[in-house]
């Protein structure tokens, strides 16, 4: 029995083989090494390391602030993409380039800069703390850092889709009597959702793994503002390689599950949309 249908385009076997070997080398091999390392400790030890109260608190902080940062970017990143695509204004190219800056900036630099800004004696922190709120050295600081590093993902996912979305459709809807809100709700957002979700998934994934910028601004208090990647580094520094990889495996599985769920929702949205369009 043939495993694959014959492809019209030649070279399928060769390219698939190449891609699979490459993926194995770059992605699967390190993951396998990680899982193997975590297997070096017994299941009981693994469970104890992966579910200690500090680890549980760290997962909450990590996934919670990554989701929060993703949601903030979902709103403002989409808005930013909208402005960049739909309006022409002086300095637009500069704004467009600025969006990519968090990609390029070393994250430690971002962390140090944000901390200097938001600390009690910083230009922003001074006002924030006068108002009775604290950002630097609290969980809020983590969210601020994550919003910064994950912003480009949503903008860059939504932008091309918006560009492909003809303004004609909106105009047609308007001539048919739809108000602006209805156009947004019924025409634009349904077309954008898959891209927004894809961007959210990327931003979320990026934020979960973020270390460099967060440790400077977080305060790193156990049970409060300690992120899981820091816990992994701390364990490694004390040469507890097994415990470190146990937490890493939990992070890996949780991230994969979250990404898979987001992708499934996205797939469902696309299917529903094309089913509707087909009617």
């Amino acid at each position: 029995m043939r495993l694959f249908r014959r492809q019209a385009l030649p070279g399928f076997g060769l390219t698939l083989g190449l891609v699979l070997s490459w993926l194995t080398l770059i992605v699967l091999l390190p993951m396998a090494a990680l899982v193997l390392k975590s297997a070096s400790i017994g299941p009981q030890e693994f469970w104890a390391a992966a579910t200690s109260p500090r680890a549980l608190a760290a997962y909450r902080v990590t996934f919670g602030s990554a989701a929060l940062a993703g949601l903030v970017n979902l709103v403002f990143g989409t808005l930013l993409a909208w402005v960049l695509v739909r309006y022409r204004f002086p300095g637009r190219a500069v704004v467009d380039a600025l969006v990519d800056l968090p990609f390029a900036l070393p994250t430690a630099v971002a962390g140090i800069t944000l901390t200097a800004l938001y600390a009690g004696n910083g230009p922003l922190g001074r006002w924030i703390e006068a108002a009775g709120w604290k950002v630097a050295y609290t969980p809020s600081g983590i969210v601020v850092a994550l919003i910064f590093v994950s912003l480009p993902f949503i903008v860059r996912s939504v932008q091309p889709v918006l560009e492909a979305l003809e303004a004609d459709i909106e105009e047609a809807a308007a001539t048919l009597g739809a108000g602006r809100l209805t156009v947004l709700r019924k025409v634009i957002l349904p077309a954008l959702w898959p891209a927004i979700l894809a961007g959210f998934a990327l931003a979320f994934a990026r934020a979960i793994g973020e270390y460099g910028s967060v440790i400077f601004i977080a305060g790193n208090m156990p049970m409060v503002s300690e992120i899981a990647p820091l816990l992994i580094v701390a364990k490694r520094d004390l040469r507890d390689y097994g415990g470190a990889s146990a937490i890493a495996v939990v992070m890996l599985v949780a991230s994969f599950t979250a990404l898979l769920a987001i992708n499934l929702v996205q797939l469902w949205l696309v299917r529903r949309r094309s089913a509707k369009a087909g009617r």
């Binding site: 901390t115 200097a116 600390a119 009690g120 004696n121 910083g122 630097a136 050295y137 440790i215 400077f216 305060g219 790193n220 208090m221 156990p222 820091l230 580094v233």
Partner: peptide, 17 residues
């Protein structure tokens, strides 16, 4: 209030922040 990861980081937190 803040647990930095290294001694130099703690010095920065105290002196500069």
């Amino acid at each position: 209030p803040v647990l930095d990861t290294g001694a130099r980081g703690a010095t920065t937190t105290f002196v500069e922040r």
